[in-house]
């Protein structure tokens, strides 16, 4: 058994779990944050994507013990003061979800993508960057549109600020 401490959505948390416990299960079962999903369990679908120390990772393929001491952001950590994060708002506006199961991973992936590319994202890059996220409903078109819209909005704002 491992006793772990990490920062999740800005709050320091600790818990006890098996050394073999996956980060996604620690997040869902120990912390009760069930927004992060398990889709495939074989590292392919990306429904479990969270940010670890600012970078997107597949939480189903990392042990909770590996993440000890790190700073994790989950889908629950994006909205602030009841306001959707711009990427969440763009997914809503552009109908970037249907059943919604893949959406937490898609949104976390999009936030990371925009962090790295800023307002320079184009459609080909977005589609290539979605390599590790699978959606079985929408056919990706509206997801891509939502990410491009959010990139234009938040990337443009960031560039204007610089």
């Amino acid at each position: 058994m491992a006793k772990l401490t990490m920062t999740v959505n800005g709050r320091q948390v600790s818990g006890t779990c098996d050394d073999r416990t996956l980060l996604v299960h620690f997040i869902r079962e120990n912390l009760g944050l069930t927004g992060t999903h398990v889709g495939c369990d074989t590292t392919q679908c990306g429904a479990c994507v969270v940010h670890m120390d600012g970078q997107s990772v597949k939480s189903c393929s990392i042990l909770a013990a590996q993440a000890a001491g790190s700073s994790i952001t989950t889908i629950e950590g994006l909205a602030s003061n009841g306001e959707l994060h711009p990427v969440q708002a763009a997914f809503k506006t552009h109908h970037g979800l249907q059943c919604g199961f893949c959406t937490p991973g898609m949104v976390m992936t999009a936030v990371d993508m925009i962090r790295r590319h800023g307002g320079n994202l184009d459609e080909a890059t977005v589609r290539a960057e979605l390599e590790g996220n699978i959606c079985r409903c929408t056919g990706y078109h509206n997801i891509v549109q939502a990410i491009l819209a959010a990139a234009a909005e938040t990337g443009g704002v960031r560039q204007a600020a610089e």
């Binding site: 590292t43 997107s56 990772v57 597949k58 993508m113 960057e129 390599e131 590790g132």
Partner: peptide
């Protein structure tokens, strides 16, 4: 290699 999340690890 892989996808963005895999490349981060």
């Amino acid at each position: 290699i892989g996808d963005p999340h895999v490349r981060h690890m």
